[in-house]
Design a protein around this nucleic acid. Structure first.
Length: 223
DNA sequence: GATTGATCATGC
DNA sequence: GCATGATCAATC
């Protein structure tokens, strides 16, 4: 019988839940929740994240809200190698490309999302099937002063370029912790942006991503 | 090996 | 199309 995990009442409960899941394989977690394990992630890239949402009692669904609304905590799974280092960058949110003039860092979706994040590392060698992957030591993170400063300056630099219509000049190479890359169904999906003359143009949707440099630091830092 | 651009599924 | 959840894969 599928077990639906109730939402933890507080931070301590959530952390306890994570510790209970530690060292379990995803197949074990899936089984206890009555979930099927896909043979691979190629047609199902979000499976790991959604399994963990279920296992930790996150507020389900596709709402534009933190996973644990009452706690203000965002859940993110992140694939790591045998050394516990992140393999991939982490998607944060879509970058606004239009009407961006009035945004400030502290009012930005990026800032809000990163205020409090529960990182759940998943030991995921490339050769491992989804079911073989193992849950690691979760970290409840809030940006340190230094981290927040760098994130803010990265964000401001990138948003300035969007405002100035330099969308096409933004490369994924910019930003120390935060960078921008395409985020769409494919290269043919388009949204509205502005060019250097302020004209509306069709362009690729972009998203903010966290570099592994930052996430590696988070996962290895003192809890 | 890290980086950067492209892509998969699902719901509304 | 955009929000949720991310990883794939070619190239540097």
């Amino acid at each position: 019988m599928p077990i639906s995990t109730p939402a933890p009442a507080n931070e301590a409960g959530l952390i306890q839940l994570c510790q209970d899941l530690q060292e379990m394989t995803l197949a074990q977690v899936a089984e206890s929740l009555g979930q099927a394990v896909p043979p691979n992630l190629m047609g199902n890239k979000g499976w790991v994240g959604q399994l963990l949402e279920l296992a930790l009692g996150a507020t389900a669904g596709n709402e534009a809200a933190p996973d644990f609304q009452h706690l203000g905590i965002e859940l993110k799974t992140i694939p790591v190698n045998s050394k516990g280092q992140p393999i991939e960058t982490t998607y944060v949110t879509t970058a606004p490309l239009l009407n961006v003039g009035h945004f400030t860092w502290h009012a930005s979706p990026v800032y809000k999302k990163l205020q409090c994040v529960l990182w759940v590392p998943i030991y995921s060698e490339k050769s491992m099937t989804p079911g073989e992957r193992v849950i690691g030591n979760s970290v409840l993170w809030r940006p340190s002063f230094d981290e927040a400063e760098i994130l803010q300056s990265d964000w401001e630099e990138l948003m300035d370029m969007i405002c100035l219509g330099q969308l096409e000049k933004i490369s994924a190479g910019q930003g120390e912790y935060l960078h921008i890359r395409p985020k769409g169904a494919n290269k043919h999906s388009l949204t509205w942006g502005i060019d250097a003359q302020g004209n509306k143009i069709k362009t690729l949707p972009r998203g903010f991503y966290l570099r592994t440099q930052l996430t590696r630091q988070i996962l290895q830092g003192v809890i």
